[in-house]
Nucleic acid binder design. Structure first.
Lengths: 131, 131
DNA sequence: CATTGCCGATTACGGACGTAAACTGTTTAC
DNA sequence: GTAAACAGTTTACGTCCGTAATCGGCAATG
């Protein structure tokens, strides 16, 4: 599922507070992004048509629920980003991001732990060649 | 400088082998991406108009040179990616990427070192609040 | 010198996107 | 019950993007 900029905003909101009604989305995003309600409605509609959201009719109104996993979309977007910007080579991408990102102590600790785990896992399968 | 998908491909090539003539770009990218030469020419033209490339007339033909720094574009694209997908919160983005990326021992080592440096730098300015 | 061929410029066109108005049907309040 | 309010659908429109054909100038070649 390929999401556009604006669609990510909508989807992120709905992933966070599911299921949601149109009015909630309009209220939240209209304020945040100064989108007109018409704009939000268009987004929702397109996302449904696209298969990213499903609607469930509750009485007279609809409730929107995400139909795609956030992790899947994130994965897709990440790959696309790495491909586009770093020609598919993820390592420099990561180095760059880590270098240029403000991270809290906590984040740093988590990352370090994660890396340690990965290092240990790989410890057996000596994979040193570049290409 | 905001670059589109296709433009990144062109720019990455030119950053790597500067200065370049149109024919070279056409040859390289036509083969790789099966773009028609017309398509490549359009890309080049748009990039020039956009200010991402400059042309220097050598005799009757032009040589293309990048007019923007790759790092600047990478930074911009990274920020835009993190904003769009993670709502500006970079830490989860990094965690996700690190988690889902195949990294060589070498890459891991580099990352770990980088993180250690960052941890030490931050050691003095206790910033723990989430907010 | 006229033709061909290369190269950059101009024009084209459909689809996606951001943005939003207008239309329609239903519910609710006066 | 009629009008206002609300929610979903349709239509709209300018821009960017991918993709490409065509045009126009200059240079080499016969």
């Amino acid at each position: 599922m390929q999401l556009s900029d604006a669609e990510w905003i909508v989807m992120n909101l709905i992933w966070d507070s599911q299921p949601t009604e149109a009015s909630d989305v309009i209220a939240a995003l209209g304020a945040e992004n100064s989108w007109s309600d018409a704009t939000v409605k268009t987004m929702l509609h397109r996302l449904v048509k696209k298969g990213a959201l499903t609607t469930e009719q509750i009485g007279k109104k609809y409730r929107y629920t995400t139909a795609v996993r956030r992790t899947a979309c994130v994965r897709k977007a990440s790959r696309s980003f790495v491909d586009r910007v770093f020609g598919g080579d993820a390592a420099p991408a990561l180095l760059h991001l880590v270098k240029t990102t403000k991270l809290s102590q906590d984040d740093l600790a988590q990352l370090r732990e994660l890396l340690e785990t990965k290092s240990n896992l790989k410890d057996t399968q000596k994979k040193g060649s570049k290409e």
